[in-house]
Simulated scan of single mutants.
Amino acid sequence: MSQSSTLSRRAPKAPPEVREPAHVPVAHVRRGGIVEGVHHGSVVVLAADGSVAFQAGDIEAACYPRSALKPVQAVGLLRAGLPPLDDEALALVAASHSGTERHLATARRILDAAGLTEDALRNAPDLPYGSAERDEWLRRGLGPTRLAQNCSGKHAAMLFTARARGWPLDTYLDPGHPLQGELAATVEDLTGQGIARVTVDGCGAPLFAVSLHGLTRAAARLATAAPDTPEGRVAHAMRTHPELVSGPGRDVARLVHAVPGLLAKDGFEGVQIAALPDGRAVGVKIADGGDRARMPVTAAALARCGVDPEVLAPFAATPVIGGGAPVGELRAAGALAPHPAES
């Protein structure tokens, strides 16, 4: 890392408090006019100047961003010396990919550039994340592999960076490895806060606990960054290739196509970030970790950012089915609800 990049970083504030988050109702499941289910969570909406324009729940408690942190980690890899990659490959570095052949070929291409094979990966083997891709994988009689696991692009880039810097490859996932130290420093810089805890993500990589507010602040910094910066390069790659960041038909890819200039990334356990080019940004955490409320709540938060509700309409509600026909819906509730009757 260059001295100039180190000097440009902001000194992180204290880490967020580790506590049970004070989540609030953010989504209702209505069937036949009755609230059948309630999803609790927390939401933050940032104005273009970085101030909090809206919040619900507990946006300052420590939480694990899961894969919503991948764009920040991709920036950290560039800062740490990841050799040049084209936009497609860089998008995959920030991806939770579905496991299409395009995804796998791009991950192989990163490994090839590093002079490595799939055997060097240390992420947990898994089946493809996308349901169609998983079904086809199983139909072909294939089992879990490291390349098919949805984080393989990030891991391939970690190895490429470690090789370029002359760091050990076998231990690149150790929290004490110099690569992970560089990534932790980037997380603290972009979120503007210290890391509360370090644990292990599902793929085996270190996972850093920050607040939902800090995570959303990091998303806004990527979205507003100059094109020639690591942040700007990651943002451009993700906006240009949303299907590589997720997969064909995935809701995040569809949202990026629908909202011009949007930067968006989801994560397991009901986490979502989305940021507009002028710095308006939203962060969502669904308390129970369920995925079904994530996008309707995100759509309601983006509407508070000024995004056209008509554009967001396909994402704002999920039908509840009874006897094969819609009998209700899941949509944002409480202060996020579009109509008082739905609060």
Score class of each variant (00 low, 15 high):
A61N: 09
H103S: 05
D86P: 02
A56Q: 12
S98E: 10
G37A: 15
Q73F: 03
A48N: 08
E88I: 04
T117W: 09
A120M: 11
H40W: 12
T100D: 02
G99F: 03
G32K: 13
G41L: 09
R102V: 09
A113D: 14
R109W: 06
L78C: 03
A94N: 00
P65L: 03
V44Y: 07
A105M: 05
F54C: 14
V29M: 15
A94T: 02
R109M: 10
P71I: 10
E60T: 14
H39T: 10
A91L: 01
T117L: 12
G115L: 04
V38T: 14
D87P: 01
R109I: 09
E101N: 05
A74E: 00
R102G: 03
R66T: 05
G76I: 03
E60D: 15
A113Y: 11
P84D: 08
V93F: 01
G33E: 14
A91P: 01
Q73S: 06
L104V: 01
G115W: 03
V43I: 15
D58C: 06
V35C: 10
R79F: 01
E118P: 08
A124T: 15
L77R: 03
Q55I: 11
L121E: 04
G37W: 15
E118G: 04
G57K: 03
L121F: 08
V45M: 09
H97M: 04
G50H: 07
L69I: 13
N123M: 11
R79M: 02
E101P: 00
F54P: 09
P71Q: 03
L111D: 02
V29F: 12
A91F: 01
S98C: 07
A48T: 10
T117Q: 08
E133S: 04
D126L: 09
G76Y: 01
V93Y: 01
H39M: 15
D126V: 10
G76R: 01
C63R: 13
D112H: 10
L69C: 05
P84I: 07
V45E: 09
R31Q: 13
A132Y: 12
Q55V: 14
S96P: 02
E60C: 11
A132K: 12
H40C: 13
A62W: 06
V24T: 07
K70M: 04
D119T: 13
H97L: 02
P125Y: 08
A113N: 11
E133T: 07
S51N: 13
A132S: 15
G41A: 13
G57W: 08
L104H: 02
G99D: 02
A95Q: 00
A47N: 15
S67G: 11
V44Q: 09
L121Y: 08
T117A: 12
S131N: 15
G57I: 06
L78Y: 02
E133H: 09
H28I: 14
V24F: 03
L46Y: 06
I59M: 05
R31F: 14
E101Q: 06
R102C: 03
L90C: 02
G41W: 05
V38I: 12
D49Y: 13
Y129D: 12
R122K: 14
K70D: 06
L121P: 10
